[in-house]
Nucleic acid binder design. Structure first.
Lengths: 188, 188
DNA sequence: TCCGATGGCTAGCAGCCGTTAGCCGATGAA
DNA sequence: TTCATCGGCTAACGGCTGCTAGCCATCGGA
């Protein structure tokens, strides 16, 4: 693993624990065994670290979603796979999800707009999934928008309470959350 | 409205928008028409502003929950009322909820521990509600813990996407989210 | 063997932060 | 009218921040 990668990992952990504004370049340096100024031999700026972190997170999530919904036309199965990917991603990338949700404000334009755009795209994709199910008579919800937000929130909540060392394995959590999502749209 | 209250309101808005570390005392002052140092005639410190904000938020939420579940023994009705209070609170206090979730790290001990304790108490109360329903054969979930987290996440998500000016009224959102919660625990 | 590139280091700049000290006009009770 | 209190203000302190400049050891290829 290159030094650049180690720096990004350290930055992620610190941003999650202390926040972007609450993290100093000296701390990030210390986490990888060098001094603050030496970081600039590897990264352009502190802001750059955040930008890259947030855009790659959203890109990864979008890519996983696309792969998940490809290969079947059945609305129930499509939603099941999308939720599986969504929850699994949030279980595996809790810190990225937390930083992504709470540090949007620290992102400077135009990157803020870019990331917000990707997030809106992800939300639309989920909403469309719910709408397809409703149109096919498989889901029964008064508002597809509200239902899709609810499903997204289920997964994003993991950032707060999920722990790998916890009593529930990743697969158990993923399975139950998927079940919750299907019940929620009235397909359970 | 006293100056002290105006300061707290301004601080809440700024903490939500820019984060605790990203907000300066001069900005809080400017929001109420005075200079930064003058704030110290009304508040003890910046940290104090955050402490008070977070503890009163949790106290308010706990009190609302207690009132909601008092007066009936029916597990379904108890959960319905608790979710109603939970969602309504988060719709009305979006900024408090957002700050409460993302600025726990900026809280200094012993206040951090106190607030975490209150949050844990709130989570336990909800879990107990689910467990009661399961014990009474009215709810059907594999894990009460996971189900209660899911319900809590439903409401907390509002902090991100709910807007008063949106197309859905508070009552509509509250009603649908309550419905989602009941479906989720298999009581719909 | 040379030498450029790489990647550490320290010093330091320019600016901002929370907070304190101390000043002063307005206000209202005695 | 007097005078203490209140609540503004500016100046300033001590400390920290992101980042740049510039120095130097190491090391791999020519």
């Amino acid at each position: 693993m290159g030094t650049g990668t180690a720096i990004r990992v350290a930055a992620l952990g610190l941003f999650a624990a202390r926040g972007y504004e609450g993290t100093t370049m000296a701390e990030i340096g210390a986490a990888v065994g060098i001094r603050g100024p030496s970081l600039y031999k590897h990264v352009a700026s502190k802001q750059d670290l955040l930008v890259e972190l947030m855009t790659t997170t959203m890109d990864g999530l979008l890519e996983l979603h696309r792969r998940a919904v490809t290969g079947t036309d059945d609305p129930v199965e499509r939603l099941r796979r999308a939720v599986d990917a969504h929850v699994r991603f949030h279980a595996r990338h809790r810190m990225e999800a937390f930083v992504g949700a709470s540090e949007m404000r620290s992102l400077v334009e135009p990157h803020r707009g870019t990331v917000l755009g990707k997030r809106a795209e992800y939300e639309r994709a989920f909403r469309r999934l719910v709408e397809e199910g409703v149109a096919a008579g498989r889901f029964h919800v008064p508002s597809a928008r509200l239902a899709s937000y609810a499903i997204l929130d289920l997964g994003m909540g993991l950032a707060t309470w999920y722990r790998e060392e916890g009593e529930l394995s990743e697969n158990e959590v993923v399975w139950q959350q998927t079940e919750f999502a299907l019940r929620l749209v009235g397909a359970g």
